[in-house]
Design a protein around this nucleic acid. Structure first.
Length: 663
RNA sequence: AGCGAGGUGGGGUAGUCAGGAUAUCCCGACGGGCUCAUAACCCGUAGAUCGAUGGUUCAAAUCCAUCCCUCGCUACCA
């Protein structure tokens, strides 16, 4: 048992869009973990809430013609309900815009100021006069000062990849309204993160959780820590103490939500939130997505330390989610919405919970495909687990009317014990997939046992022996219900009831898995899982394919290519050595072009606009590495660049030798 | 570019930190068994030079070095 009470949190969903299964990749394992701890006798409080501040919510609210608060509430309710439908049950689900969080954030920031961890500095910020607000760099686009490529405010994302400092970008434009943005001087406040380097190195050394979180953060801290700007010029958010024109950066008040939500919960239940947050060591475990590791392993512990709070005990970071092998992307259509695409189709939360938990290691990327989803549900949940439970209960009910009054074989209990130990080992290491493999292993053991013992044969010769076998199987079924409850809570409850229990399985502990099943009548069983039909899966696949196709149509209009693609083109100057008309063709000229290191034969469609005499001797621009093609039976090894319908030849302004590379 | 993660039979995936004999599990293929059960379940067979090369060792998927490939992240995006 730990000294401090156990607190588990999940990364806060941002209230600017609906829940998709990428979200669940973090929430389902967290819920699974919490349920497991509870089934193991641990007292746990499970806290989450919605993240409401920041520019994107202001922008989206304006677009929808509502207030940021109203937009936040809409999605807050949405997430709260969706999580419940998925069986992800928080003890409290708060909002970062609620008064308690405003108060806690200001209090914490004041302590940082009092402890000398905050200073002010004047910096330049992009400002859009039309929108009348300062723009986060993500909302600014322009030209990279280093390479001249189109770039984002913070990074030359399409060109040289360099990080851009505020004020560096040329021709800044507001991405919301498209007008020219300017720069304005503004006083901002910085957190002295650089002073926490030593602390963080020691802290990360002892941080529990998954290795990806620790390694990633460690590399960052060892490299360089810059001080962190913790204010924004925005109306929407938590006011920075003493400055009505500034709010704190959302990444400050969002994690503080973990504290304030604990406060809200503690107020309701009459306990002290300080027991969770104000003493070391804490028993705080954060479940987060892999993309926000540095916030939780660097900024957050430094803030807590600087303000005199306890620091988290563990950070458990999940890997990314893919759809059909593609990177999860709303704009490209590779998305599965939790409500529209899953729950509202009548699919059980249990199936998706099982898939998300059992697919792979928690820190690796997880691929969702309807086909694989169907395979795993049908083979593992329905066939292996569901069928063992059903054939056992069915046989017991049919032949004995319930649980026969016979003793249990020791080796069965020993096997369950082995499973429990293996599961617990895996859970301690946050190896959720391995834990579930052990669970499913027990179901396979059950199938094996009933198959080898063949009670349907025994019943004809030795009724008592058959009774003993089926009793053993009933013990296994009970054990399976208890150990699988954290994974598939609804199905576990159903099995629990079919074992003759009237109460909630949640009120029982996993250790009961080795206990007896009291003799007595059982209700008639029914299968707990049903198979996913091919037709249904095909339908879902079609829906996804359609969405991807439609997204593709939109995207082709403004498709960009990465710089690397452009680099593949070998464009250079050339000089036309000779030219002749291609026989039987109106448009084609056969050219011999000097491109520096060789003379190329190129067929060009410009006979209508120029004559062989005119073009001979002219400098031209050539794509030299185009795939060779046969035009009118004549091989063409490149392409002459010309503009427009009149095929106006492109040529260098100053004279350069043939073969000069064009960039 | 830097940092992080990964490359294991046809597909997916475990094992790598703490090196050891026939490399796990799910599917797929093939053959057999069983009939209590949701055409289920059980058994067996084929199939992997564990990304490449070199090294350490009695012994390497595992440790070390170099290289190739894939993905992710890179702070005044949330």
């Amino acid at each position: 048992m730990r000294d401090s009470p156990v607190l588990v949190t999940c990364g806060l969903p941002y209230t600017n869009g609906p829940c998709h299964i990428g979200h669940l990749r973090t929430y389902v394992p967290a819920d699974f973990y919490v349920r497991y701890l509870r089934r193991s006798g641990e007292k746990v409080v499970f806290i989450c809430g919605s993240d409401n501040h920041g520019t994107p919510i202001v922008v989206n609210a304006e677009r929808d013609g509502v207030t940021p608060r109203a937009l936040s509430e809409r999605y807050h309710i949405h997430f709260d309900q969706t999580f419940r439908r998925m069986g992800v049950l928080f003890d409290h689900f708060g909002m970062t815009d609620n008064p308690v969080n405003h108060h806690r954030t200001q209090s914490l920031v004041n302590r940082l100021i009092a402890n000398g961890h905050v200073y002010s500095r004047v910096i330049q910020q992009s400002y859009c006069t039309k929108c009348g607000r300062f723009l986060p760099d993500r909302y600014v686009e322009g030209i990279c000062p280093h390479c001249g490529s189109p770039a984002r405010g913070d990074e030359c994302d399409q060109g040289c990849g360099r990080h851009l400092e505020p004020g560096e970008i040329k021709e800044p434009t507001c991405m919301v309204c498209g007008t020219k943005a300017g720069f304005r001087d503004q006083e901002h406040y910085f957190f002295r993160l650089s002073e926490f380097k030593e602390f963080l190195l020691g802290y990360l050394e002892g941080l529990s959780g998954t290795l990806n979180a620790r390694n990633y953060a460690m590399g960052w801290v060892k490299d360089e820590l810059r001080d962190w700007c913790i204010t924004r010029t925005l109306d929407w958010g938590v006011k920075f103490p003493g400055r009505d024109d500034l709010v704190v950066y959302v990444w400050v008040d969002a994690p503080i939500g973990y504290i304030s939500f604990t406060e809200e919960w503690a107020d309701e239940t009459g306990v002290s939130w300080k027991d969770y947050w104000c003493r070391e060591p804490t028993a705080i475990t954060h479940f987060i997505g892999g993309d926000i590791i540095y916030h939780h392993c660097i900024f957050w512990p430094a803030l807590l330390k600087g303000a005199g709070y306890g620091t988290p005990h563990a950070v458990v970071a999940s890997g990314m989610l893919k759809v059909d092998g593609h990177k999860f992307s709303k704009s490209r259509g590779y998305v599965v919405w939790t409500n529209d695409d899953y729950l509202d189709k009548g699919l059980p939360a249990d199936y998706l919970r099982y898939y998300l938990l059992s697919y792979t290691n928690h820190t690796k990327e997880l691929n969702f495909s309807w086909k694989v989803f169907q395979e795993r549900v049908n083979n593992e949940l329905v066939n292996t687990l569901g069928n063992f439970v059903y054939r056992t209960l069915y046989f017991a009910h049919k032949e004995f009317g319930g649980v026969p009054d016979v003793p249990v074989r020791k080796e069965i209990v020993a096997e369950i014990d082995r499973s429990l130990a293996a599961i617990d080992r895996s859970m301690q290491e946050y190896e959720f997939k391995t834990a579930i493999d052990s669970m499913m292993g027990l179901a396979a053991y059950g199938n094996n046992y009933i198959q080898a013992s063949a009670p349907w044969k025994l019943i004809k010769t030795d009724r008592d022996a058959a009774a003993r076998v089926i009793k053993d199987c009933l013990i296994l079924v009970q054990a399976l219900a208890l150990i699988f409850e954290p994974v598939i809570p609804e199905a576990a409850q159903e099995i629990w009831q079919m074992l003759g229990n009237a109460d909630r399985i949640e009120d029982h502990q996993i250790s009961g898995a080795t206990g007896d099943v009291p003799p007595g009548p059982l209700p008639p069983p029914r299968p707990v899982f049903s198979k996913l039909e091919d037709a249904f899966i095909a339908e879902m696949d079609e829906l996804l394919a359609k969405r991807v196709k439609e997204a593709g149509k939109k995207a082709t209009k403004m498709k960009t290519i990465p710089f690397e693609e452009f680099c593949k083109l070998d464009i250079r100057t050339g000089k036309v050595i000779s030219a002749e008309k291609v026989p039987k063709s109106n448009k084609l000229l056969k050219l011999r072009v000097d491109i520096g290191d060789e003379i190329r034969q190129i067929v060009a469609g410009m006979a209508e606009f120029t004559t062989p005499e005119e073009i001979t001797g002219k400098p031209v621009v050539v794509v030299a590495n185009l795939q060779p093609a046969k035009i009118f039976g004549i091989e063409s090894n490149g392409m002459i660049l010309a503009a427009g319908e009149q095929a106006s030849l492109l040529m260098p302004e100053k004279e350069v030798p043939p073969g000069t590379k064009i960039r």
